[in-house]
């Protein structure tokens, strides 16, 4: 519980945490409380923000409610970010763990496999994957997961390589513990903190990726997302800048607060590594 205490004393991280918490609440309850479909044309197009109290953030090029779009977009952004990170962790942790723990040819094989993914620019790969399967929430989430697991595998491998020669791991071997037990119960719990930090930053990257895909028109056509909103407004930036600015701000805020939280987590979990504290 020490970690939570340290984290709560870090004001910057707490700002990030609260912004994120608000976004999460919006994602969970927003669509239930704010009635109005993001696709329905409700007013004249290009209604500027704060002019009509019914449509606080105005309307877009087709007269759709921007606020509704923003609220529905929060849901999809956070969902894709979280789920794809989760999948990436599920791929990356076991691969990295096996490579780092066993070393030798297992390591060679798994790391060369990882490098295949690392040599291809991740955004291009994501575009290709989404384009092959048709754009849907599922294909986007899997595409993001597939391009973002290699750093996890690398990190976990490094942690395992340094921890596997620790004396408590040797002692477990001498105890006759199985490899599975040693990996799961001796090494993994001790390498969790850098993984948690990395995961928080990965959520931010995933949200950016999702927005970029939607911006290019590769988003799920059924679902309103922040990236799609910017993409749709890109031709009218000079007449109606707010149409790009508002969802852009939402993306920036989410990513920024995730980064602040990740930084805070890093400091709380690895006080020696972050170099902020002098001992």
């Amino acid at each position: 519980m020490n970690i939570i205490k340290t984290l709560s004393q870090n004001k910057v991280a707490m700002v990030g945490f609260f912004v994120l918490a608000i976004f999460c609440l919006i994602a969970a309850f927003g669509p239930l409380l704010y009635d109005g479909s993001p696709w329905k044309m409700v007013q004249r197009p290009f209604l500027p923000p704060f002019e009509n109290s019914n449509y606080l953030l105005g309307t877009d090029t087709l007269g759709r409610d921007v606020l509704a779009g923003l609220i529905y977009g929060t849901r999809i952004s956070l969902l894709v970010g979280l789920v794809s990170t989760l999948i990436a962790l599920l791929i990356g942790i076991p691969l990295g763990a096996y490579a780092g723990y066993f070393g030798g040819w297992v390591d060679e094989l798994l790391m060369r496999f990882t490098e295949i993914f690392q040599t291809v620019p991740s955004f291009a790969l994501a575009i290709v994957i989404v384009a092959i399967f048709e754009p849907s929430v599922y294909s986007i989430t899997s595409a993001i997961a597939i391009v973002s697991w290699p750093p996890v595998a690398r990190l976990v491998r490094g942690e395992f390589m340094s921890l596997r020669s620790q004396e408590y791991v040797l002692a477990a071997k001498l105890n006759g513990q199985t490899h599975r037990n040693i990996i799961m119960r001796e090494i993994l719990p001790n390498s969790l903190s850098p993984i948690i930090v990395l995961a928080s930053l990965m959520v931010a990257t995933a949200i950016l990726l999702e927005s970029s895909l939607s911006f290019l028109g590769l988003g799920d056509p059924e679902i309103m997302s922040w990236g799609y909103m910017i993409g749709a407004a890109k031709t009218v930036v000079r007449q109606a800048w707010w149409l790009s600015f508002i969802p852009g701000l939402a993306i920036a805020l989410t990513v920024l607060s995730l980064n602040l939280l990740g930084e805070g987590l890093n400091e709380a979990l690895n006080p020696k590594m972050s170099g902020k504290r002098e001992n």
Binding site: Q166, E167, Y168, L170, A171, A172, L174, N175, G176, Q177, T178, N181, R185, E186, P189, N190
Partner: peptide
């Protein structure tokens, strides 16, 4: 082992650390 700080898993209780071996056997 040599290093009393590295030879015990920091995330396990002393009881678990000692009992783990016999349980594994």
């Amino acid at each position: 082992f040599q290093d009393p700080f590295a030879s015990l898993n920091p995330r396990k209780t002393i009881g678990q650390i000692i009992a783990d071996g016999p349980i594994a056997q």
